[in-house]
Amino acid sequence: MIASKYLIGIGIGVFLFGSVKAQENYKDKDTELVFKNKQVHEVLQVNVDEVKFKKKPKNIVLLIGDGMGVDHIFAGITANKGQLNLQNFKSIGFSKTQSADDYVTDSAAGGTALACGKKTSNGSIGVDENGNTLKSILEIADANGLATGLVSTSAITHATPASFIAHQPKRSMYEEIAADFLKTDIDVFIGGGNSFFTDRKDKRNLVSELKEKGYQMYTDLDAAANVNEGHLGVLTAPEHNPEYTQRGDMLLKASDKALEILSKDKDGFFLMIEGSQIDWGAHQNNVSFLTGEVLDFDTVIGEVLKFALEDKETLVIVTADHETGGFAVVGGDINKGKVEGGFVTGHHTGCMVPVFAVGPGASEFGGIYENTEVFNKMLKLYGFTK
Protein backbone atom coordinates (compact mmCIF):
# COMPACT_ATOMS: atom_id res chain seq x y z
CA MET A 1 0.00 0.00 0.00
CA ILE A 2 2.82 2.40 0.88
CA ALA A 3 4.54 1.62 -2.40
CA SER A 4 1.30 2.26 -4.30
CA LYS A 5 0.82 5.64 -2.64
CA TYR A 6 4.44 6.47 -3.37
CA LEU A 7 4.09 5.63 -7.06
CA ILE A 8 0.82 7.55 -7.32
CA GLY A 9 2.55 10.54 -5.72
CA ILE A 10 5.35 10.39 -8.25
CA GLY A 11 2.86 10.20 -11.11
CA ILE A 12 0.90 13.20 -9.87
CA GLY A 13 4.12 15.15 -9.31
CA VAL A 14 5.39 14.45 -12.82
CA PHE A 15 2.00 15.39 -14.31
CA LEU A 16 1.89 18.68 -12.42
CA PHE A 17 5.44 19.68 -13.23
CA GLY A 18 5.20 18.57 -16.85
CA SER A 19 1.98 20.45 -17.51
CA VAL A 20 2.99 23.82 -16.09
CA LYS A 21 4.35 25.13 -19.37
CA ALA A 22 5.96 23.99 -22.61
CA GLN A 23 9.22 25.18 -21.07
CA GLU A 24 8.93 22.34 -18.55
CA ASN A 25 7.81 19.52 -20.86
CA TYR A 26 11.24 17.91 -20.70
CA LYS A 27 10.01 16.41 -17.42
CA ASP A 28 7.49 14.17 -19.19
CA LYS A 29 8.41 10.52 -18.66
CA ASP A 30 10.14 8.66 -21.48
CA THR A 31 11.58 5.76 -19.56
CA GLU A 32 14.54 3.91 -21.03
CA LEU A 33 16.84 1.94 -18.73
CA VAL A 34 19.67 0.74 -20.99
CA PHE A 35 22.22 2.67 -23.06
CA LYS A 36 24.98 1.34 -25.28
CA ASN A 37 27.43 3.95 -26.51
CA LYS A 38 28.26 3.80 -30.22
CA GLN A 39 30.83 6.61 -30.30
CA VAL A 40 33.53 6.76 -27.63
CA HIS A 41 35.15 10.20 -27.41
CA GLU A 42 38.84 10.85 -26.89
CA VAL A 43 39.93 11.78 -23.39
CA LEU A 44 42.92 13.92 -22.36
CA GLN A 45 45.76 11.95 -20.81
CA VAL A 46 47.51 14.27 -18.38
CA ASN A 47 48.81 14.34 -14.81
CA VAL A 48 47.53 17.67 -13.51
CA ASP A 49 49.72 17.32 -10.41
CA GLU A 50 52.74 17.95 -12.64
CA VAL A 51 51.33 21.18 -14.11
CA LYS A 52 52.70 24.38 -12.59
CA PHE A 53 49.62 26.57 -12.28
CA LYS A 54 49.82 30.17 -11.08
CA LYS A 55 49.02 30.72 -7.39
CA LYS A 56 45.93 32.84 -8.04
CA PRO A 57 43.33 32.41 -10.79
CA LYS A 58 42.93 35.19 -13.32
CA ASN A 59 39.99 33.35 -14.88
CA ILE A 60 37.33 30.97 -13.55
CA VAL A 61 35.22 28.62 -15.64
CA LEU A 62 32.33 27.07 -13.72
CA LEU A 63 30.76 24.10 -15.49
CA ILE A 64 27.38 22.97 -14.13
CA GLY A 65 26.01 19.59 -15.12
CA ASP A 66 22.40 20.18 -14.18
CA GLY A 67 21.10 17.26 -12.10
CA MET A 68 24.45 15.43 -12.34
CA GLY A 69 25.13 13.13 -9.40
CA VAL A 70 27.84 10.53 -8.84
CA ASP A 71 26.04 7.74 -10.69
CA HIS A 72 25.33 9.98 -13.67
CA ILE A 73 29.08 10.48 -13.90
CA PHE A 74 29.79 6.78 -13.53
CA ALA A 75 27.27 6.06 -16.26
CA GLY A 76 29.40 8.33 -18.45
CA ILE A 77 32.60 6.57 -17.41
CA THR A 78 31.03 3.19 -18.22
CA ALA A 79 29.59 4.34 -21.56
CA ASN A 80 32.92 5.85 -22.63
CA LYS A 81 34.61 2.53 -21.86
CA GLY A 82 36.26 3.53 -18.62
CA GLN A 83 37.45 7.10 -19.17
CA LEU A 84 36.15 10.65 -18.93
CA ASN A 85 38.00 13.96 -19.07
CA LEU A 86 36.51 14.57 -15.64
CA GLN A 87 38.79 11.89 -14.20
CA ASN A 88 41.76 14.24 -14.66
CA PHE A 89 40.41 16.38 -11.81
CA LYS A 90 42.21 15.52 -8.56
CA SER A 91 40.59 18.02 -6.15
CA ILE A 92 37.14 16.63 -5.33
CA GLY A 93 34.55 17.62 -2.74
CA PHE A 94 30.79 17.45 -2.19
CA SER A 95 28.19 20.16 -1.78
CA LYS A 96 24.92 19.94 0.14
CA THR A 97 22.09 21.26 -2.01
CA GLN A 98 19.15 21.96 0.31
CA SER A 99 17.34 25.26 -0.38
CA ALA A 100 16.10 27.79 2.17
CA ASP A 101 12.57 26.37 2.19
CA ASP A 102 12.90 22.75 1.07
CA TYR A 103 15.07 19.71 1.70
CA VAL A 104 15.00 19.12 -2.08
CA THR A 105 16.08 22.12 -4.09
CA ASP A 106 15.02 23.13 -7.56
CA SER A 107 17.41 24.55 -10.16
CA ALA A 108 16.49 28.15 -9.39
CA ALA A 109 17.44 27.95 -5.71
CA GLY A 110 20.35 25.64 -6.48
CA GLY A 111 21.64 27.94 -9.21
CA THR A 112 21.22 31.01 -7.01
CA ALA A 113 23.23 29.38 -4.22
CA LEU A 114 26.11 28.68 -6.61
CA ALA A 115 25.86 32.06 -8.33
CA CYS A 116 25.18 34.32 -5.35
CA GLY A 117 26.31 32.45 -2.23
CA LYS A 118 22.94 32.57 -0.49
CA LYS A 119 20.26 29.95 0.15
CA THR A 120 16.90 31.00 -1.23
CA SER A 121 13.40 29.61 -1.73
CA ASN A 122 12.67 27.18 -4.54
CA GLY A 123 11.71 29.03 -7.69
CA SER A 124 13.61 32.22 -6.85
CA ILE A 125 16.17 33.68 -9.26
CA GLY A 126 19.00 35.84 -7.94
CA VAL A 127 17.04 37.00 -4.89
CA ASP A 128 17.02 35.88 -1.26
CA GLU A 129 14.01 34.29 0.45
CA ASN A 130 12.63 37.76 1.21
CA GLY A 131 12.93 38.90 -2.39
CA ASN A 132 16.02 41.06 -1.91
CA THR A 133 18.42 41.26 -4.86
CA LEU A 134 21.65 39.26 -4.55
CA LYS A 135 24.81 40.04 -6.49
CA SER A 136 26.07 37.09 -8.50
CA ILE A 137 29.68 36.11 -9.06
CA LEU A 138 29.21 37.14 -12.70
CA GLU A 139 28.01 40.60 -11.71
CA ILE A 140 30.81 40.99 -9.16
CA ALA A 141 33.39 39.90 -11.73
CA ASP A 142 31.98 42.43 -14.20
CA ALA A 143 32.08 45.20 -11.58
CA ASN A 144 35.75 44.40 -11.03
CA GLY A 145 36.61 44.77 -14.71
CA LEU A 146 36.52 41.14 -15.81
CA ALA A 147 34.88 39.85 -18.96
CA THR A 148 31.86 37.60 -18.36
CA GLY A 149 29.91 34.92 -20.19
CA LEU A 150 27.10 32.38 -20.03
CA VAL A 151 26.62 29.30 -22.20
CA SER A 152 23.76 26.80 -21.92
CA THR A 153 22.03 24.02 -23.84
CA SER A 154 18.72 25.20 -22.37
CA ALA A 155 17.10 28.58 -22.95
CA ILE A 156 19.54 31.18 -21.63
CA THR A 157 16.60 32.45 -19.54
CA HIS A 158 16.14 29.08 -17.81
CA ALA A 159 16.71 28.70 -14.07
CA THR A 160 20.43 27.94 -13.85
CA PRO A 161 21.87 30.49 -16.29
CA ALA A 162 19.27 33.04 -15.19
CA SER A 163 20.54 32.80 -11.60
CA PHE A 164 23.83 34.39 -12.68
CA ILE A 165 22.33 37.44 -14.39
CA ALA A 166 18.69 38.00 -13.40
CA HIS A 167 16.74 38.92 -10.26
CA GLN A 168 13.15 37.70 -10.29
CA PRO A 169 10.86 36.09 -7.69
CA LYS A 170 9.78 33.28 -10.02
CA ARG A 171 11.81 31.21 -12.46
CA SER A 172 8.81 31.10 -14.82
CA MET A 173 9.14 34.85 -15.51
CA TYR A 174 11.13 34.20 -18.70
CA GLU A 175 10.36 37.52 -20.37
CA GLU A 176 11.31 39.48 -17.25
CA ILE A 177 14.50 37.43 -16.98
CA ALA A 178 15.32 38.20 -20.62
CA ALA A 179 14.84 41.93 -19.93
CA ASP A 180 17.40 41.68 -17.13
CA PHE A 181 20.09 40.99 -19.75
CA LEU A 182 19.71 44.64 -20.77
CA LYS A 183 20.72 45.70 -17.24
CA THR A 184 24.14 44.04 -17.41
CA ASP A 185 27.34 44.31 -19.40
CA ILE A 186 27.79 40.59 -19.99
CA ASP A 187 30.22 40.05 -22.86
CA VAL A 188 29.03 36.72 -24.30
CA PHE A 189 25.83 34.72 -23.90
CA ILE A 190 24.90 31.71 -25.98
CA GLY A 191 21.82 29.52 -25.52
CA GLY A 192 18.20 29.14 -26.53
CA GLY A 193 15.30 31.40 -25.64
CA ASN A 194 15.02 33.76 -28.63
CA SER A 195 11.22 33.97 -28.30
CA PHE A 196 11.53 35.56 -24.84
CA PHE A 197 13.59 38.35 -26.38
CA THR A 198 11.48 38.94 -29.50
CA ASP A 199 7.93 37.53 -29.13
CA ARG A 200 6.89 39.29 -25.94
CA LYS A 201 3.70 40.42 -24.26
CA ASP A 202 5.11 43.95 -23.88
CA LYS A 203 5.97 44.07 -27.63
CA ARG A 204 9.59 45.00 -26.90
CA ASN A 205 12.24 43.56 -29.19
CA LEU A 206 15.15 42.95 -26.85
CA VAL A 207 17.38 41.77 -29.68
CA SER A 208 17.05 45.18 -31.33
CA GLU A 209 17.72 46.85 -27.98
CA LEU A 210 20.81 44.70 -27.45
CA LYS A 211 22.07 45.64 -30.91
CA GLU A 212 21.64 49.30 -29.96
CA LYS A 213 23.86 48.61 -26.95
CA GLY A 214 26.56 47.28 -29.26
CA TYR A 215 25.87 43.54 -29.16
CA GLN A 216 26.45 41.40 -32.22
CA MET A 217 23.29 39.27 -32.21
CA TYR A 218 22.74 35.98 -34.04
CA THR A 219 20.34 33.04 -34.06
CA ASP A 220 22.88 30.68 -35.62
CA LEU A 221 26.19 29.81 -33.97
CA ASP A 222 27.89 29.11 -37.30
CA ALA A 223 26.91 32.57 -38.52
CA ALA A 224 28.90 34.02 -35.60
CA ALA A 225 31.99 31.96 -36.43
CA ASN A 226 34.05 34.99 -37.51
CA VAL A 227 33.15 37.07 -34.45
CA ASN A 228 36.18 37.03 -32.15
CA GLU A 229 35.83 40.17 -30.10
CA GLY A 230 33.28 42.58 -28.69
CA HIS A 231 29.89 41.77 -27.18
CA LEU A 232 28.16 38.70 -28.59
CA GLY A 233 24.74 37.15 -28.09
CA VAL A 234 23.63 33.98 -29.89
CA LEU A 235 20.07 32.80 -29.27
CA THR A 236 20.27 29.34 -30.78
CA ALA A 237 16.61 28.22 -30.51
CA PRO A 238 13.15 29.76 -29.96
CA GLU A 239 13.03 28.10 -26.53
CA HIS A 240 15.30 25.18 -25.54
CA ASN A 241 17.91 23.60 -27.77
CA PRO A 242 17.20 20.02 -28.87
CA GLU A 243 18.82 17.08 -27.09
CA TYR A 244 22.35 15.92 -27.86
CA THR A 245 21.32 13.54 -30.66
CA GLN A 246 19.94 16.48 -32.66
CA ARG A 247 21.99 19.55 -31.73
CA GLY A 248 25.43 18.16 -32.67
CA ASP A 249 28.43 19.84 -31.03
CA MET A 250 26.56 23.06 -30.22
CA LEU A 251 27.77 23.17 -26.59
CA LEU A 252 31.39 22.58 -27.59
CA LYS A 253 31.30 25.25 -30.30
CA ALA A 254 29.56 27.72 -27.98
CA SER A 255 32.08 27.13 -25.19
CA ASP A 256 35.02 27.52 -27.59
CA LYS A 257 33.57 30.77 -28.91
CA ALA A 258 33.07 32.13 -25.39
CA LEU A 259 36.64 31.23 -24.41
CA GLU A 260 37.98 32.78 -27.62
CA ILE A 261 36.35 36.13 -26.90
CA LEU A 262 36.62 36.28 -23.12
CA SER A 263 40.29 35.28 -22.99
CA LYS A 264 41.21 38.49 -24.84
CA ASP A 265 40.41 40.52 -21.72
CA LYS A 266 43.75 41.25 -20.03
CA ASP A 267 42.05 41.50 -16.62
CA GLY A 268 40.57 38.00 -16.78
CA PHE A 269 37.10 36.52 -17.06
CA PHE A 270 34.29 34.52 -15.49
CA LEU A 271 32.40 31.98 -17.58
CA MET A 272 29.56 29.63 -16.62
CA ILE A 273 28.82 26.71 -18.94
CA GLU A 274 25.76 24.55 -18.29
CA GLY A 275 25.08 21.06 -19.54
CA SER A 276 21.37 21.53 -18.91
CA GLN A 277 19.87 18.36 -20.25
CA ILE A 278 21.54 15.78 -18.03
CA ASP A 279 18.75 16.82 -15.68
CA TRP A 280 16.12 16.35 -18.37
CA GLY A 281 17.18 12.81 -19.15
CA ALA A 282 16.99 11.98 -15.46
CA HIS A 283 13.55 13.60 -15.11
CA GLN A 284 12.42 11.33 -17.93
CA ASN A 285 14.04 8.29 -16.29
CA ASN A 286 15.85 7.82 -19.58
CA VAL A 287 19.34 6.32 -19.22
CA SER A 288 20.21 6.89 -22.89
CA PHE A 289 19.27 10.57 -22.73
CA LEU A 290 21.07 11.38 -19.48
CA THR A 291 24.21 9.35 -20.31
CA GLY A 292 24.50 10.85 -23.78
CA GLU A 293 24.23 14.32 -22.23
CA VAL A 294 26.98 13.46 -19.71
CA LEU A 295 29.23 12.39 -22.59
CA ASP A 296 28.48 15.61 -24.49
CA PHE A 297 29.23 17.63 -21.35
CA ASP A 298 32.51 15.77 -20.84
CA THR A 299 33.76 16.72 -24.31
CA VAL A 300 33.34 20.35 -23.24
CA ILE A 301 35.07 19.66 -19.92
CA GLY A 302 38.01 18.28 -21.93
CA GLU A 303 38.18 21.39 -24.10
CA VAL A 304 38.07 23.75 -21.10
CA LEU A 305 40.66 21.63 -19.28
CA LYS A 306 42.95 21.83 -22.32
CA PHE A 307 42.59 25.64 -22.27
CA ALA A 308 43.42 25.75 -18.55
CA LEU A 309 46.46 23.50 -18.93
CA GLU A 310 47.88 25.82 -21.57
CA ASP A 311 46.84 29.02 -19.82
CA LYS A 312 48.08 28.07 -16.30
CA GLU A 313 45.95 30.78 -14.63
CA THR A 314 42.44 29.45 -15.19
CA LEU A 315 40.56 27.64 -12.42
CA VAL A 316 38.08 25.07 -13.74
CA ILE A 317 35.24 23.90 -11.48
CA VAL A 318 32.74 21.20 -12.42
CA THR A 319 29.69 20.59 -10.25
CA ALA A 320 25.89 20.25 -10.24
CA ASP A 321 23.04 22.25 -8.76
CA HIS A 322 21.34 19.08 -7.45
CA GLU A 323 20.88 15.40 -8.24
CA THR A 324 17.95 14.30 -10.40
CA GLY A 325 16.14 10.97 -10.50
CA GLY A 326 17.74 9.17 -7.58
CA PHE A 327 19.66 7.51 -10.40
CA ALA A 328 21.72 4.37 -9.85
CA VAL A 329 23.91 2.36 -12.19
CA VAL A 330 22.62 -1.17 -11.55
CA GLY A 331 24.52 -3.01 -14.27
CA GLY A 332 26.56 -2.62 -17.40
CA ASP A 333 29.69 -3.54 -19.32
CA ILE A 334 32.63 -1.12 -19.50
CA ASN A 335 34.23 -3.00 -22.40
CA LYS A 336 31.04 -2.59 -24.43
CA GLY A 337 30.13 0.90 -23.20
CA LYS A 338 26.83 -0.45 -21.92
CA VAL A 339 24.95 1.12 -18.99
CA GLU A 340 21.93 -0.24 -17.13
CA GLY A 341 20.21 2.11 -14.70
CA GLY A 342 17.31 2.57 -12.34
CA PHE A 343 15.52 5.54 -10.77
CA VAL A 344 13.85 6.33 -7.47
CA THR A 345 11.87 9.34 -8.72
CA GLY A 346 11.13 11.55 -11.70
CA HIS A 347 12.14 14.63 -9.73
CA HIS A 348 15.17 15.91 -7.85
CA THR A 349 16.60 14.38 -4.67
CA GLY A 350 18.35 15.80 -1.62
CA CYS A 351 21.65 13.99 -2.31
CA MET A 352 25.00 15.72 -2.10
CA VAL A 353 26.63 16.38 -5.47
CA PRO A 354 30.33 16.26 -6.36
CA VAL A 355 32.55 19.29 -6.95
CA PHE A 356 35.68 18.84 -9.09
CA ALA A 357 38.42 21.45 -9.52
CA VAL A 358 41.67 21.91 -11.46
CA GLY A 359 43.95 24.94 -11.58
CA PRO A 360 44.96 27.75 -9.25
CA GLY A 361 43.14 27.35 -5.92
CA ALA A 362 41.71 23.92 -6.78
CA SER A 363 42.61 22.52 -3.35
CA GLU A 364 39.99 24.84 -1.81
CA PHE A 365 37.23 22.61 -3.16
CA GLY A 366 37.93 19.43 -1.20
CA GLY A 367 35.66 18.38 1.68
CA ILE A 368 31.92 18.55 2.33
CA TYR A 369 30.23 21.94 2.46
CA GLU A 370 27.08 23.88 1.59
CA ASN A 371 26.51 24.77 -2.07
CA THR A 372 26.85 28.46 -1.15
CA GLU A 373 30.54 27.81 -0.44
CA VAL A 374 31.25 27.37 -4.15
CA PHE A 375 30.45 31.08 -4.55
CA ASN A 376 32.45 32.03 -1.45
CA LYS A 377 35.48 30.07 -2.60
CA MET A 378 35.39 31.70 -6.05
CA LEU A 379 35.04 35.13 -4.47
CA LYS A 380 38.00 34.46 -2.16
CA LEU A 381 40.21 33.16 -4.95
CA TYR A 382 39.47 36.15 -7.18
CA GLY A 383 40.25 38.41 -4.23
CA PHE A 384 36.92 40.23 -4.53
CA THR A 385 34.44 41.33 -1.88
CA LYS A 386 30.64 41.31 -2.18
Rank of each mutant, 00 (worst) to 15 (best):
A155K: 12
F327P: 01
N285K: 10
I12V: 14
D49G: 05
E175I: 03
A141I: 11
V70K: 00
E274P: 02
T112K: 10
A22K: 13
V43H: 02
K380D: 15
S99T: 09
E175H: 05
N335L: 13
L259I: 05
G233S: 13
A258V: 01
Y26K: 11
K386I: 13
Q98M: 15
V344R: 14
K253A: 02
G332C: 03
Q216M: 08
T78I: 13
D279K: 12
L138T: 09
D28M: 13
K56Q: 15
A159Q: 10
N37G: 05
E310W: 00
V151H: 01
G326R: 07
T97W: 05
T245D: 15
K38T: 07
L290M: 14
V287Y: 08
I368W: 09
G326H: 09
G192T: 04
C116Y: 12
E239T: 09
D30K: 15
F94N: 06
I190T: 07
D202P: 05
K58P: 10
I60R: 10
L315F: 12
Q246T: 12
G9Q: 12
S124N: 15
M217N: 09
S19V: 02
H347E: 14
P242I: 14
S195W: 01
K312I: 06
V329Q: 00
D106L: 13
E209C: 10
I12M: 12
K38I: 01
G341M: 10
T105F: 06
V46A: 00
D30W: 09
L114F: 03
N47D: 15
D187S: 13
T314F: 09
E209A: 09
E129R: 15
N376A: 14
A224I: 07
E370L: 06
V234Y: 05
D71W: 06
A225L: 06
V339G: 04
D128H: 06
F196K: 03
Y244E: 15
G326C: 10
I92P: 02
N241T: 05
T97P: 07
P238K: 05
L182M: 14
I334A: 03
T78C: 01
P169W: 10
L146F: 11
